[in-house]
Design a protein around this nucleic acid. Structure first.
Length: 287
DNA sequence: CCCACGACCTGTGGGC
DNA sequence: TGCCCACAGGTCGTGG
């Protein structure tokens, strides 16, 4: 669901209420998300202070003043909401409105000062784990990740190396988190459309200059999406409930049958299933 | 290495 | 109105 811009939007929303705060109460309302929650999940988190909230690829990482880091992935439908206690209460005891969607409110964090952060995830493809901080980079979820697309490490040369000799299209390869970490279906479609590269063209035969342009467009579309608060399709909302609005600026994704937005192109956006997922592209200008 | 396909799980939207 | 099917932002695994 959430791709890099959505996860980054969530991070920016949560950071002010979590960073530097102690977890006073943690509730796991079911024993598992996609995977079982760690044994002693609640116990290990209760009383811990979150020193920083970071993002790597599509993972959120809450650094703790303990050995472990709380790692969270939103899967397809994961979402966080923040709320404040209502009414008066004795210090240290807060009263909250019931969760908006109690059926899918799986994990609840209450922090010092009273804010409550609830994790909702109808499909439960999301997951949370406690991972030893010292060896975090060696964990299977992180060890093989490619560069952050917004970092200087992501370059045309990276793509040249990763694409060399590959007959698969750039669409599938850009979804591979080992090549570049954080892209998903939407932003890959958008970046390829902006660069006028066919999602199906054998990746190894794309000229170096076009890969440089692709890198620039990946960055541009991600930055624009972050600035817009991400994209809201079915259920993505920012932590304050506001909707991101980048979906209104899609040029390819979910625009089957509508005109291509590229200058001078009169093509119509098409949809094809590629590697089991919808690819949206312009058959006229994307070559 | 590539692809096709299915699994995980639940909800929603469109077509009839 | 109601039902059924296709499809959904991600990842993981299998088998040809």
């Amino acid at each position: 669901m959430p791709e890099l811009p959505e996860v980054e939007t969530v991070r920016r929303g949560l950071a002010p209420v979590l960073e530097g705060r102690r977890l006073t109460r943690v509730e796991a309302r079911r024993p598992d998300l996609r995977f079982p929650l760690p044994v002693n999940f609640v116990q290990q988190l209760t009383g811990a202070t979150i020193t920083a909230l970071d993002r790597r690829a599509k993972y959120l990482m809450a650094r703790l003043d303990r050995e472990d880091t709380l790692v969270m992935h939103l899967g397809m439908s994961g979402r966080f909401e923040i709320d404040r206690p209502e009414g008066s209460s004795r210090p240290g005891e807060f009263h909250y409105a019931p969760p908006v969607d109690a059926k899918h409110a799986h994990v609840v964090f209450e922090v010092e000062g009273g804010a409550r952060v609830t994790y909702y995830d109808p499909r439960r493809f999301g997951y949370m784990a406690l991972v030893n901080t010292a060896t975090l980079d060696l964990h299977p979820w992180f060890a093989g990740l490619g560069p952050e697309p917004l970092s200087a490490a992501f370059t045309g040369a990276c793509l040249r190396a990763a694409f060399a000799g590959r007959r698969q299209g750039p669409k599938t390869l850009l979804l591979d988190q080992r090549i570049v970490a954080g892209l998903g279906n939407i932003y890959v479609c958008e970046a390829l459309n902006r660069t006028r590269i066919s999602p199906f063209k054998p990746a190894g035969r794309i000229a170096a200059a076009r890969l440089d342009a692709l890198v620039a467009n990946v960055r541009a579309v991600l930055e624009e999406a972050i600035a817009a608060g991400g994209s809201s399709l079915r259920d993505f909302a920012q932590t304050d409930g506001a909707l991101g609005y980048f979906q209104h600026r899609f040029r390819a994704y979910d625009r089957e049958g509508q005109p291509c937005c590229n200058d001078g192109c009169r093509g119509i956006i098409a949809r094809k299933v590629q590697a089991g997922r919808s690819t949206f592209y312009c058959p006229v200008c994307q070559r």
